[in-house]
């Protein structure tokens, strides 16, 4: 059995799987809202990587639709980061911390 190289789909899928698992782990274990946001970014990255990988390894060669889908994943990640950080700011204003265990409300 040979070592998979850059021309094997399984290597990319393995890396994406590790990325996604690390993201789930971060979302589940972090008590801090910023840690959860970090995990979310990891998961979105895994999704974009898989789109690009599957688009590259089509039977009839490189399919740019995979890359286009990955671009949209990145757009969603950017929008999500902006809104999430605004929410973090609001939580910080009301409770002086971004600990998700302590946060009860968003009303000042």
């Amino acid at each position: 059995m040979s070592i998979p190289g850059p021309d094997s789909l399984s290597a990319y899928l393995g890396v994406a799987a590790v990325l996604f698992s690390a993201g789930v782990l971060a979302m589940a274990t972090r008590r801090n809202a910023i840690g959860v946001l970090l995990g979310l970014e990891l998961m979105l990255n895994a999704a974009a990587l898989q789109f690009a990988a599957y688009g590259r390894f089509r039977a009839d060669g490189l399919d740019p639709q995979g890359q286009t889908a990955a671009v949209f994943v990145i757009v969603v990640a950017a929008a999500e980061a902006a809104v999430a950080l605004a929410l973090l700011f609001a939580v910080y204003r009301t409770s002086k911390d971004v600990d998700l265990e302590q946060t009860r409300e968003l009303r000042s």
């Binding site: 910023i34 970014e41 990145i74 950017a78 980061a81 902006a82 950080l85 700011f89 911390d97």
Partner: peptide
Amino acid sequence: IQVIVYIGGILVLVLFATLFS
């Protein structure tokens, strides 16, 4: 795009946000 949007934009935002914690 990964370098510009993620490393240049989102990562810097997250680094700023760590100041809230």
